[in-house]
Amino acid sequence: MAELFIFFEQIYRILFLLIPVLVSVAMIVWLDRRVWAFVQKRRGPNVVGPFGLFQTLADALKYIFKEIIIPASANKIIFILAPIVTMTLALIAWAVIPFSETFVLADINVGILYLFAVSSLGVYGIIMGGWASNSKYPFLGAIRSAAQMVSYEVSIGVIIINVLLCVGSLNLSDIVLAQKDLWFVIPLFPMFIIFFISALAETNRPPFDLPEAEAELVAGYQTEYSGMMYAMFWLGEYANILLMCAMGSILFLGGWLSPIDLFPFNAIPAPIWLILKILFLFILFALIKAIVPRYRYDQLMKLGWKIFLPFSLIYVVLTASFLMYFDLLPGN
């Protein structure tokens, strides 16, 4: 009986996390379009509901009632699996995100490695979808995206090492608590910039949206998808973007901590701070989508391998020697 109770409690906790994440993904799509429109002096979606807030729900409804078309020459199993993989991977990563000192679904020892692993698995949804469509444009998009995501993962990994050197633990709550006095964005500011750009590339956001560059590849790996399956790709993509924003705010912006440990600020509940930081990073993502032109593919690769990787490696050496020299290494 007790086991059954624990089981249902866990399911309740999972739903309590998952449903807000899904709702906020819907809201974030609306926000993205509003910011984009704002920069271009348009109005954006403003008709459905107050301020157009329900636009995404209306879109989702439309996708649900559309027909799902599976190309005759497609590999059916993998074709159907691809959006499911994308969506699932985008959602399971939220299990380890700490919203406050106590509010975390799974407070595991290797939380940051788990996040990194799940975000590096994200490439499979795209590569499966592109290959299974058995069509030229999706395949090209998938190949591009695989190379792009694998390249930028490397630099994200090195950036994570930088943060871990300052923390001395792979646990996400420890990472946040280590920033109690000083957010890592200040000593590691160059790493924050590189993390932000790599996150753009990792989630295939403009200016690095080459896998779905509409001028060259129609819609990249999504070309053959329709109806609900397309919607799942789309939602998975935005859930991934939110996840990257959450990762950025935990690694560099002090997670759930308030900026100043004084009365009016630390009275605000911890999850609100995390959500505000995620929103701040997301608005930056959305602004960059609106104002920066798309990169050329060879420039993208050059940026990843020849600039970001050496620079962040050098920064690892710098951070390590700094901590060693001033005897600041954690664990001593």
Binding site: N109, V110, S120, E153
Partner: peptide, 14 residues
């Protein structure tokens, strides 16, 4: 858990 995660990152992810 460390080995498991490294397995995922290195073998599956790359």
């Amino acid at each position: 858990e460390f080995l498991g995660m490294i397995m995922l990152i290195v073998y599956v992810g790359a």
